[in-house]
């Protein structure tokens, strides 16, 4: 009973704040709404018996990735940049195609994905995930760590425009630890 209440409240929160992200003109408000939306998704993960991933969702998405977004928006002072109006035809096509996609996929979910309730309780704790990561998935795991390393190097190279003049600018000094943190937390 409680479960259903929690599901509906947080599903509503997730959808409303996701709409704010897409519709609001101020990028800072958008980023903060996305944080709220991600947080309510973490609640969904708890309802799906995956508390470990719920904690990771908050740490990685809300705590690292969205902070990075917020930093970039604030440092570039983007709230003063007026976004150009979208062409009407683009707007029309965007809304209709998204709606069409939604209607189609909900139709097929209702038609074909009517499962019976899972029988045995599903418990995915950190121990099982760890064992699985280092046995069955050890190769993808190593690949992801190399990818993260590449991302760190790439982000530093791209955002540091004064890399060859040996003169650093204060905003870019701020960027560096943050770019790494997004990657490190996940590892």
């Amino acid at each position: 009973m409680f479960e259903y209440l929690i599901f509906f409240v947080f599903a509503a929160i997730a959808i409303i704040f996701a709409l704010v992200v897409v519709l609001h003109r101020n990028a800072v408000v958008g980023a903060l709404s996305l944080v709220v939306s991600f947080f309510s998704l973490a609640v969904m993960y708890v309802l799906l018996d995956a508390p470990f991933l719920a904690a990771l969702q908050v740490i990685v998405y809300a705590g690292a990735i969205m902070v990075l977004f917020l930093f970039v928006i604030m440092l570039l002072n983007l709230q003063h940049v007026q976004e150009a109006n979208t062409r009407p035809v683009q707007k029309f096509l965007g809304y209709t195609s998204a709606a069409a996609f939604l209607i189609t996929i909900v139709y097929y979910i209702l038609k074909y994905a009517a499962f019976t309730a899972p029988a045995s309780p599903f418990r995915a704790d950190a121990h099982q995930i760890g064992v699985s990561l280092f046995e069955a998935y050890v190769f993808p795991f190593e690949m992801v760590s190399i990818l993260l390393l590449a991302a760190i190097v790439g982000a530093m190279l791209l955002s540091n425009r004064s890399i060859d003049t040996s003169e650093s600018i204060s905003t870019e000094v701020m960027e560096q630890p943050d770019g790494e943190s997004g990657a490190e937390v996940t590892r």
């Binding site: 904690a55 740490i59 917020l70 704790d125």
Partner: peptide, 20 residues
């Protein structure tokens, strides 16, 4: 919780938002 310490870090990472 069986992920107690992760909850602490998750909430601690949210405390950045108040300041920012």
């Amino acid at each position: 919780l069986n992920v107690g310490i992760l909850v602490i870090f998750a909430l601690a990472s949210l405390s950045v938002y108040g300041v920012t």
